[in-house]
Design a protein around this nucleic acid. Sequence first.
RNA 1: CGGGGCGUAGCGCAGCCUGGUUAGCGCGCAGCGUUCGGGACGCUGAGGUCGGAGGUUCAAAUCCUCUCGCCCCGACCA
Length: 567
Amino acid sequence: MRLSRLFARTQREVPSEADTASHQLLLRAGMLRQLTAGVYCYLPLAWRVLRKIEDIIRDEMNKAGGQELSLPVLQPIELWRKTGRDASFGKSLFTLCDRKERQLALGPTHEEVITQLASQHVQSYRDLPLLLYQIQTKFRDEPRPRGGLIRAREFAMKDLYSFDADEEGLGQSYQKMLEAYGNIYKRCGLPAILIEADSGAIGGKDSHEFMVVCETGEDEVIYCDSCHRASNAEKATSAKERISSGKALPVEEVATPGYYSIEEVSDFLKVPRHGTLKAVFYMADKELVFVVIRGDLEVNEVKLANSLHSTGLRLATEEEAKAAGIVTGSASPVGLKGIKIIADDSIKTGVNFVAGANKPDTHLKNVNYPRDFKADTVADIALARAGDTCPGCGGKLLSAQGIEVGHVFKLGAFLSSKLDAFFTDAGGARHPVVMGCYGIGIGRLMAAIVELNHDNKGIIWPTSVAPYLVYLCPLYPETPGVMAAAESLYTELEALGLEVLFDDRVESPGVKFNDADLLGIPLRVTISPRTLEKESVELKRRPEKKTELVPLDKAASKIKGIFTPSS
RNA sequence: CGGGGCGUAGCGCAGCCUGGUUAGCGCGCAGCGUUCGGGACGCUGAGGUCGGAGGUUCAAAUCCUCUCGCCCCGACCA
């Protein structure tokens, strides 16, 4: 490709809309252009990278036994109502009406469509296992798209769905996918780690994410340095050590005039934070819920929503709490009636807690569970934080930011049951198909590659996904011989099947070198009067400083050798 | 949805507070010349419904009202 003809123009200045490295560099390199919030045009250079990423993914999916197909983006809303996931996706689901006023959704994912499709085909255990995938545009009306391609509203995703006869089969399919995913990231030059995850709106049981640790990532990873167990902060657990024990003393009222927060009350009563019980109020799908947790811990709203099976959880306002009869500032589960109480299991780690009294300016000492109050549910709903103790090995938990570059779910049979995807087993009995789903955002993967592979000059593409392999860079093109040599090398390299970006522009060396660096092409090949004096060309790899002179007549084969694996 | 910021040429910005020639500057773009191994220089030139609508005024990029859009923080989010 001749650079003079390429539909791209590099920019020296950083577009004001971008503040992450990948977003800035993709814009500056002329690869990306925003159309509207969270919606992007991919210019030719970006498109080449995306196609290479897709090819790697296809290759791994096919090796794992996947069959590629293509499913519609436009989907009848009824299908979503059947599974109830129109509600779990809520406003993130783009919907529209056709001319007959029938409601349609733009697919944010494709479980519904593929399960219905599979149900028409899968009849016997002999049809299983089945792995189907596609690379398709998804639409999600994110509340706030951000970071360029990190969180877009329209984006390409590879989504594979596995169909198995039982949990064991699902386990095998899941394992295959974990391995295939590992290969994909490795081939893309990304050091992705596997972590435990919450399954969110997709639903299902086990779920894992592949994360790339990176400061600009929007997810928090909680991990243990000793046993290397890692989880999304939404899912992470920490050990809740026993902090006190002994005899439960009689409940005692104390006046706490003007002290409301845990900090104020514990300081005033000279009780450590973990010797108190904190009350927090949430609205879960229009029902007020009273949450109790040890005073030193925070509520993890994802865990809370899961244990409540709620799709619309938010903090209650003070007015809502008061309307329900709660004495804010001194709220207590003790003696509370008519309100659902959810307690974190940390309430069992000690005795004689300080809690509210449901009376203004009053708290209770020596509150003990379950002697003094009952909870409708006791579960782990606490936020694990850096510094907490690892529940697995007792080590210290650490925290890091990460970009989620893949997410896999063991769905089980809840969708297949609802969508009538059944099969007959060897004994003639009918069962719902057991499903899994596995997604990789293509654009986000590209952005993650840039986040992890750049320097202050620009992008440094791994060879496997680089838009072109060679940046052919003649200097002083008007000097006799230079262009002739460049043209002939260009022809030679293309004949060898190498992807060459030929900088045939009349520009100064500085401009060309800087563009070569910004675009991040793995190998720069310079031809100038200076190199031609020695009958040679100069090679320079993008991440390296050193250059190498190679005789003109050996250049093509030398370059070919660089990009041929020496296996 | 709450808070903040911003819409002026392809990109980055100034001008607005305090209304008043022909709306400027840098990059980029076109032409000519001199240069040129890490974003050269000179000259010339093209390119603008000042996000949109309404209002105030003799006069609006500038003041007022409404509206649309974009970005950031938070809520939220496979």
